[in-house]
Design a protein around this nucleic acid. Structure first.
Lengths: 338, 338
DNA sequence: AAAAACAACGCAAACGTTTGATTAATTTTG
DNA sequence: CAAAATTAATCAAACGTTTGCGTTGTTTTT
C-alpha cells in the first residue's frame, strides 16, 4: 500500500492506449468512444486513480486557490469572516490558504510575497494596523493576481474593497442616543492613526451637527484601547464639566473595561453605553451596552469572496472599474431586560 | 506589466547558459562559478524573477502545505487552535489550507478527499460530531499523508492525536467543588453519543468514588446542549430530592443558559457553577462560573502541528509508534469578586 | 609527462497532465 | 463513386524546475 499513486500514464500503459486518450476519457471528451471511455473509467476506479493536483495546477497555471491575509484569526470578527470566505470558496471549488500578519507590517509584506509565490489565483486582505505603505500589493498586478480588501482597507478608492461604513453606523448610534434624550454623549475613540477612528469621529460629528447641536471636541477622547487607557478616558468623563450620560465605546473590549470600571465605582446606571460588536456574548452581560453596531462579518467575508471569484473569472481587460462595496451596518438595540 | 512572469529558461536564454546552471546558480550550488552566479542573481533580480511554486511543487512531489479540517472555524476554540497551527507552520515554511466540515460527516469525507487531491503533505483533523466511521482517513495511508487528530479525536489509540484529558479535568473540577463543601453536585452532560460526554461522566464518577461518596446517577443528566435542553435539565435539578448546590456544565454555552435561567428564577446564588471554557469573556459575567476547565487550544494546536511536521519529516519507516499526546487541562478558579 | 583531481558548466530526462494538430478509419453526402 | 464530413484515437509539445550524469578544459599531484 506504500506504492506510488496511480498515474494517467500507467492506466494508458495497461490499456495500451495513449495518455492523452486516458485524460480525455476521464473528462468525457467527445472524441473518445463510449467503450474506451468506460474501460478507462473502470480501470481508473479499480486502481484508485486520483488526479495529481500539483501537476494539473502546474500545467494550467491556475491553482484554484485563494489566499487570505488577516491580522489575527482568533479575533472573533475575523474568524467569522474567514469562515464565510471558506464557505463561498468551496462552493466554487476553490481552496483557501491563509496566514496571519499579527498586525505587523513586515510580516504582511512577507506574506504577500509568499502568496504570490504560491501563485494564488486571488488574494483577500485585511490590512495590518501598522500598514501605511501599499507597494507590496502593487507587485501583484504584474502577476495578474486580483486583490480584494475587506474590513481593514487602504485609504484610497482605486482598489477593490468590501467594508462597513462605520461613519453611517456611528450616525445611527448617536442618533439613537439623542432620541433617548441624551444631550451630552461621550466617545472613547481609538488612536487617531486609525482610519476606523476617523470614521467614528466623523459620524459622531455629523449626527451632532444634523441635530443642530454644538460639537464639543472634549467629549471625543482618544484611547490606546487598553484597559488602563479606557479607565483614564472614563475618569475624564466623570470629571467633565458636562458629564456625559451616554458613551460610545470604540469596541466591545473598551465597553467591557468601561462597564467593569463603572460597576466598581457604582456609577454604571448613570450611563448608556453603545459599542461596536466584536465579542460574541457581550449581550449576556448584566449591564451590557444598550445598543451595538453590527458589522456583519459573515456578510462581509461572503461578499469579498464573491467579488474576488468574479475578478478571477472575468477577463483581465476589465481593469477599469473597482468594486467599492459598502456593507451597511446596523444598530442592534438590545432587548430590554426584565 | 501584464507580461508573463520571468522564468529560469528566459534568464538562461538571455545569459546564453543552460537553465540548469541558472537553477543551480540561484541555489548557490558549488559547481557554479562566482562570476556566473552573480550575473544570474543580478539578472534575476532585475527581471523580478519569482520561482514558480507550482512547478517546484510538482517536480518535487511535495507541497509544503498542511491541511486542516475542523468542524467550525468561527468557534472560539478552533479559531485559537488554527491560529496556533498557522503560527507553527509558517515557522517551518509551510502553508496552511483549511476547510470546515460544519459537523457533517459527508462533508468531512469530501474534504478529506479534496485534501488528498491537493496532495497536502499532512493533515490535521478535528472530527465532526456525527463521524463514527473512519475509513476515509485510512485511504490517506496509501498516499503517505500523515494525519494527526486534535481535540475531537477518534475513539481508538492507533492514530496520532493530541487532546485534552477531560476526564482528569473533570476530576479536578468535582474535587474542587467537594472541597468547597458541596455534597450534591449535578452535571449537565452532552449527548451520550459524544466521547466528550463519556469522559466527563467518567471523571465525575471517579472523583465521587475517590472521595468515598455514593454516586447518584440521577445527578448526571444528558442534554442536547440547546437552551431549551439546558432549562429542562435545570428544572430537574431544582425539583431533585437531593437538590444539588453545584453544577458542572458541559460547556460555557450551557453555563450561560443556566445562569440566565437561574437569574430569572432568582436562584442563581444557590448554585456554584463550573464549566468547560469555550467562550472568551465569560468570566466577565456577573454570576460567572466559579471555575472553568481550561483546555489550552493554542497549546493543542501547537503540539498537533509540531507532531505533524515531525511525521512529515521523519522517514515513513517509523510507522510503528503513535503519538498519543494528552495536554493536561487545568481548573482555572475565577477570582473572588469584590 | 602521464595520471588524477577539480572546477564550471551543459545535456537530457523527469515529474503528470492537458491540448492543438494530425492521422486513420469509417460513414455520410451530392 | 469520389469527395466531404464524422468519429476515434494518437502524437508531440508544453508548463518550469530540478538533478544525475557527462563533458570539457584547467590545475594539481605523483
Amino acid at each position: 500500500m506504500q506504492s506510488k499513486p496511480t498515474t494517467i500514464k500507467e492506466i494508458a500503459r495497461i490499456l495500451n492506449i495513449s495518455p492523452s486518450s486516458v485524460s480525455r476519457g476521464l473528462h468525457d471528451h467527445p472524441s473518445i468512444g463510449a467503450v474506451t471511455r468506460e474501460k478507462i473509467k473502470q480501470l481508473a476506479k479499480s486502481l484508485n486513480y486520483e488526479p495529481n493536483n500539483a501537476a494539473i495546477l502546474f500545467q494550467k497555471g491556475k491553482t484554484y486557490t485563494i489566499g487570505v491575509i488577516l491580522p489575527e484569526l482568533s479575533e472573533h470578527f475575523f474568524s467569522i469572516a474567514i469562515s464565510a470566505i471558506e464557505d463561498e470558496a468551496i462552493k466554487k471549488n476553490y481552496t483557501v490558504i491563509f496566514a496571519q500578519s499579527h498586525d505587523n507590517y513586515e510580516q504582511e509584506v512577507k506574506l504577500v510575497e509568499k502568496m504570490k509565490n504560491q501563485r494564488v489565483d486571488g488574494l483577500l486582505v485585511s490590512i495590518s494596523k501598522d500598514t501605511s505603505k501599499f507597494d507590496h500589493f502593487e507587485k501583484l498586478n504584474s502577476f495578474n493576481i486580483p486583490v480584494v480588501f475587506f474590513d481593514r482597507i487602504p485609504p484610497f478608492k482605486n482598489v477593490h474593497y468590501v467594508a462597513c461604513s462605520l461613519e453611517s453606523a456611528t450616525i445611527k448610534a448617536v442618533n439613537y442616543l439623542l432620541k433617548k434624550g441624551h444631550r451630552s454623549i461621550g466617545m472613547i475613540n481609538g488612536p487617531n492613526t486609525l482610519y476606523a477612528s476617523e470614521e467614528r469621529k466623523e459620524g459622531y460629528m455629523q449626527a451632532i451637527n444634523f441635530n443642530r447641536l454644538k460639537f464639543d471636541p472634549t467629549l471625543v477622547l482618544n484611547c490606546d484601547l487598553t484597559e488602563q487607557g479606557t479607565i483614564e478616558a472614563a475618569e475624564q468623563f466623570l470629571n467633565h464639566k458636562r458629564k456625559p450620560t451616554a458613551i460610545v465605546a470604540f469596541n466591545d473590549y473598551v465597553a467591557l473595561f468601561l462597564i467593569k470600571y463603572f460597576k466598581k465605582l457604582n456609577v454604571i446606571h448613570d450611563f448608556d453605553i453603545v459599542s461596536y460588536a466584536n465579542l460574541p456574548i457581550i449581550s449576556y452581560l448584566d449591564n451590557s451596552p444598550v445598543a451595538s453596531v453590527e458589522q456583519y462579518p459573515y456578510l462581509q467575508g461572503q461578499k469579498a469572496a464573491n467579488i474576488l471569484l468574479d475578478l478571477i473569472h472575468s477577463p483581465n481587460s476589465e481593469k477599469q472599474a473597482y468594486y467599492n462595496t459598502i456593507v451597511e451596518s446596523d444598530l442592534i438595540v438590545n432587548e430590554v431586560k426584565e
